[in-house]
Design a protein around this nucleic acid. Structure first.
Length: 581
RNA sequence: GCACCCGUAGCUCAGCUGGAUAGAGCGCUGCCCUCCGAAGGCAGAGGCCAGGGGUUCGAAUCCCUUCGGGUGCGCCA
């Protein structure tokens, strides 16, 4: 249950009644009517724009409608005051009992408080990470992994049935390069001197793989031509890399529901089937592309190729699906993969990609629109770069020098909780600064710590209360009279708690989990502020000296805050700390 | 040349998908621990929301345009 939705339906009922008795024309479209927290808390608890939205279609002045609406709403026992303000806003103030009831609700529902029916009955597939299986995951993948996982969590709480999926790019030339590189390490394991030419992966992480291969097959592939060993070594190597990647993901706390192999699309007719589906819609043809305007590629020559008419669905150019040597471009298996997702019956597809894939979005959307006849939307979330620094100095990365920073480097140094939280404090399409020193700092400048500290503080107070003899179980706290929680400073914290369900919905609708992180920071801030007011005003302290029942009531609020912080951190995939010492 | 993303306080960034006087952290100035965790809090200063048009009751938010930055642009994924 969402308090804002609740009051909104009360407002809609009132408008409906006004339509019946002639105060408004009947049958007005009320879809644009909102009930939201006002920007300035001094305006009240909630504000509705109903009068302004309806003024024109009703042919009445906004304030006139607002005043009539105010009179009706004042009859509701939950609404203390309804005041017309500004250009026609109606500001509502709710009875303290409503807010106290919300605390009870939070304590009763626990982590379920905030669950929404927004995505009820809808299945969504989120494809993320999808790093090539050619090596360990690096920082760039880390951000995508954390984002995708948190997005999955948000959508799940918002009622969607979520599948987390990893697309294994094991069908292209890069896995042959991997196989050749492993083969070199294999020879090395047999005591040969090897040289890593350009176009091979020299990383140390393949040494173990080469040795494991030697242990498995002995010298069977030594001095053998490539066509003998390439396929089996490729298989062996990609398996090893996938094991590595799964372990990396596990270190971050990310678990996939599904791994989908690109290779499984080749030689099985699945790519052909997907392209046939396009052909049957008249969207595949043989043609010649115009050279790009501006700077012409050096080796440009006109050539006829098989093209997908993506321009029919909003792309700027038609896109080739077949190379001149007759093999598929990367786009062809991607079409087949998305076709597969569509046929699996998802209602929504989300791809989490690096920002360098931005040019690919329109064609993929076009393909999905064509293949699903516009039924299944594809949303693409582009991840901007992570700028790694240490003490303000950029961390230099070079693949050749072997100094590129891996996911493991980050997680080992700062831990999964900090890694995840920090990576979610920025919008996906904004670059992210990640400073190894700053993220471990324990001050309010560091949002991870600040939020964790708020949670730990509440746990500390609860421990103290328990020492006083208070039953601090949620059910016990929820079962009592909370009339003692009535100070404006307390009610304003509850108001923040009331925003949690709509924050979840907004984050889910926009696909922006960072909103959760910012909400938690604000909530933590409200708690810290209330805590400190207890220094001067003893009636605001959570622990009321020598008064067990009053303490039990007071403690319910910070506990409710902790419940929401904990639920929010769960979305981000961060463990709430019970103490920070 | 074209497409996509971005431009908000000195710095790093939010801004509830069109609402009221645009917010937070850092930094700067001044305060608050005989008192539940000061790893915190309070107060002050700081803005042409890149510029210009438009849409309407109302624009940082939507549309057009200019400028500035990033990413990409047929046989790499």
């Amino acid at each position: 249950m969402n308090l804002f939705d609740d009051i909104r339906s009360t407002v809609l009922d009132a408008l409906d009644a006004m339509g019946r008795d002639g105060a408004l024309p009947p049958g007005l479209d009320v879809s644009a009517v909102t009930v939201e927290p006002p920007r300035d808390a001094a305006h009240g608890d909630m504000a509705t724009n109903a009068a302004m939205v309806l003024a024109k279609p009703a042919g009445k002045k906004p304030r006139e409608i607002a005043e009539a609406l105010a009179i009706r709403l004042s009859d509701d026992p939950r609404i203390d005051t309804a005041e017309v303000a500004g250009p026609g806003f109606l500001n509502l103030r709710l009875a303290p009992a409503v807010w106290q009831g919300l605390v009870v609700q939070i304590l009763s529902e626990g982590a379920e408080y905030g669950r929404s029916a927004l995505g009820k009955g809808k299945r969504v597939n989120i494809e993320f990470v999808s790093a090539n299986p050619t090596g360990p995951m690096h920082v760039g993948h880390t951000r995508g992994a954390v984002f995708g996982d948190a997005l999955a969590n948000v959508l799940s709480l918002a009622g969607y049935e979520v599948t987390r999926e990893y697309y294994i790019n094991d069908g292209g030339a890069q896995v042959d390069v991997l196989a050749r590189s492993v083969y070199l390490r294999y020879l090395e394991a047999h005591g040969h001197d090897v040289a890593f030419a350009d176009g091979t992966y020299p990383g140390d992480y393949l040494i173990d793989v080469g040795q494991a291969l030697r242990d498995l097959v002995g010298d069977a592939y030594v001095d053998q031509p490539e066509d003998v060993w390439l396929a089996p070594v490729r298989e062996f190597a990609t398996d090893a890399m996938l094991t590595l990647i799964r372990a990396d993901l596990a270190a971050l706390g990310v678990r996939m529901d599904s791994f989908f192999s690109e290779k499984s699309l080749y030689g099985t007719g699945r790519i052909e089937a997907a392209l046939d589906a396009l052909r049957s819609k008249g969207l595949l043809y043989e043609g010649v592309l115009e050279p790009p305007k501006g700077k012409l590629p050096d080796d440009w020559e006109e050539r006829e190729q098989t093209l997908f008419r993506s321009t029919a669905h909003g792309d700027d150019l038609d896109r080739p699906v077949m190379k001149s040597d007759g093999s598929w471009t990367y786009f062809a298996p991607d079409i087949a993969y998305h076709y597969d997702k569509i046929t699996r019956g998802f209602d929504l597809l989300i791809d989490v990609l690096g920002a360098d894939h931005g040019g690919y979005v329109k064609r993929m959307k076009a393909a999905v629109a064509a293949l699903s006849d516009g039924r299944v939307p594809l949303e693409v979330k582009l991840m901007q770069l992570v700028k790694l620094t240490r003490g303000g100095e950029p961390v230099k990365m070079s693949k050749r020098a072997g100094t590129f920073v891996t996911l493991r480097d980050v997680v080992d140094q700062v831990g999964p909780d900090v890694t995840r939280f920090v990576m979610l404090t920025r919008k996906n399409d904004a670059p992210l600064d990640f400073d190894f020193d700053k993220v471990l700092e324990q001050s309010k400048e560091n949002p991870v710590f600040y939020v964790q500290y708020a949670h730990a503080r509440v746990c500390s107070v609860l421990r103290k209360a328990a020492d006083m003899g208070v039953d601090v179980a949620d059910a016990a706290l929820a079962g009592q009279d909370l009339a003692a929680i009535c100070h404006p400073a307390e009610l304003s914290v509850i108001r923040k708690l009331a925003e949690w369900p709509r924050t979840v919905e907004i984050a889910a609708q926009t696909g922006e989990p960072h909103r959760i992180a910012f909400y938690l920071y604000d909530l933590a801030s409200d708690l810290h502020a209330l805590w400190n007011r207890g220094n001067d005003q003893t009636e605001l302290r959570f622990l009321q000296e020598d008064d067990v029942s009053r303490t039990a009531a007071k403690i319910a609020l910070p506990r409710a805050v902790a419940v929401v912080i904990s639920a929010g951190l769960a979305i981000l995939g961060v463990t709430p700390m019970e103490e920070m010492r």
